[in-house]
Design a protein around this nucleic acid. Structure first.
Lengths: 265, 265
DNA sequence: CAAGAAAGTATCACAGGTATACTAATGAGG
DNA sequence: CCTCATTAGTATACCTGTGATACTTTCTTG
């Protein structure tokens, strides 16, 4: 369950004020205290970078302890000197791969939040596996916090209270994650051989027939609507995705606008 | 990769019109064709019910093929006669566990969508593992479709186009999933022994110190705001969750209102 | 140059998914 | 009623992954 670097194992004596759990120390790259013994060839950054590279190439499922270790020329067990567990590695990867947010300063909160959402989306689309890292707790890595800071800064000119700000930020982030995940799932399914395309078509056709108008009138109408018939071939996929994404985002921003107006009065 | 019941293995000869992939046939409980050979002691419903029971008790991680089989008094491999793979089992579980939506008919779209969201939330809170089932494709089970139908029915009196309806439905569903998942993650963390409470407190305290006002001014202000200081003990957790949930939901509904007004003119 | 501390390694136990090849049970046709 | 095709469930095995334990190696410091 716990590697040699788990919290209970290697915290030195500290006042309760200075105590920082090992996982957080690694997330924030706090310097190691002692300089005794054999110097490390590996460190958190190397391990995380190797893992991210594998995830970029093979997806999150391709990231296993032995594979990451091998790509570095070490044994699997060696990684446990630098990360507490596989789960912690995923958290570290997620923070590193998010990178720091771009400069998003604007006076217009709406433009700012829109840019923030598009910036996150760009990162997620570049690394779809990020949308599947199981979130184990609130954002706590430096990059996650930096993205949070950016959103809060954009809203700092408004009179929204903290609960609203956090709620809005979480809502938008969740929306971005969800929409990218959905899009990338489809894309991946499509990429798996070309027999997959046939299977997908069969699947869709069969589903349309299972959704009988007597039981599911609205859904049946939806399935036979222009949305599912008209644009199969002429519109590029990415354009559809962009349109859909903006639709939801602007809807959320309209909701935010209502809140801001309300808090201004 | 594929069990004996995978699509390629056991579709009889059919016209391409009647072809239904095996996974869909199981999701929709289509009757098995032949009545030859040994009759089955197990069926999809039994397997799925056993798996759901385990998930309810031990979470999604507790659901393994051997454990589900053992709880039924069979060997692990026997399950593969009735479900194509573990992933398919998860899909079947998700559909079954959602159940059918309650009656939500109203003339007021806003009340209707609010009720829909709260109804979904009730299901998810009862079975938090549902929020972690990896969605492998668009909703295609009968219950998933029924929930979709319910939302579309609520919006059927509006003049929203299909793209908007689907977008709104997806947005609200995503919001509900996300908020329940977050809440249940915290609750689970807390439940894991009481030493966990200390660890969590340490974690929070350390994080607050890592977020220095020079680097993260807004976040630092957030962390020292009333949100994080005032209500630790006096307010019950569930109340906070309800308030936060409604906040985001009403914001979304405000956004929807704007769209409906716009489409009415 | 010894002492000892930390890094990396070799082994191991355990668990889960699933392919393959088996045995068992049943109804249809002779 | 017997036999055989047909389908259900089983035994076995492989492979992969996490991570515990104990060992060896390679440093720094005294």
């Amino acid at each position: 369950m716990m590697g040699p670097n788990s919290p209970e194992a290697n915290e030195g004596a500290m006042t309760s004020e200075d105590f920082v759990p090992a996982a957080l120390r690694r997330l924030w790259r706090m310097p190691e205290s002692s300089r005794l013994g054999r110097p490390a060839a590996l460190d958190v950054d190397l391990v995380v970078a190797a893992a991210v590279e594998i995830a970029d190439r093979d997806g999150l499922g391709g990231v296993t302890i032995p594979k990451v270790a091998k790509s570095l020329g070490f044994t699997g067990m060696s990684l446990y000197r630098h990360v507490g567990s596989k789960n912690e590695l995923l958290t570290l990867m997620a923070d590193a791969a998010m990178g720091t947010p771009p400069d998003l300063d604007t006076d217009d909160w709406r433009e700012g939040l829109r840019n923030w959402a598009f910036a996150q989306r760009a990162v997620f689309r570049r690394r779809p596996w990020l949308t599947r890292v199981p979130a184990s707790g609130p954002p706590s890595g430096p990059n996650q916090i930096a993205w949070m800071e950016a959103a809060l800064a954009i809203m700092s000119r408004t009179r929204l209270d903290w609960a609203h700000k956090v709620g809005i930020l979480t809502l938008i982030n969740g929306y971005v994650v969800q929409s990218v995940r959905q899009y990338s799932e489809l894309a991946e399914g499509r990429a798996e051989g070309q027999g997959q395309a046939d299977a997908e078509r069969d699947y869709g056709r069969a589903l349309v027939r299972l959704v009988e108008p007597e039981h599911f009138p609205e859904t049946a109408r939806l399935f036979s609507s222009a949305l599912f018939e008209a644009l199969p071939s002429d519109t590029p996929d990415a354009t559809i995705a962009d349109t859909d994404f903006s639709l939801g985002l602007e809807l959320i921003l309209d909701g935010v606008a209502v809140r801001i107006e309300r808090s201004d009065s």
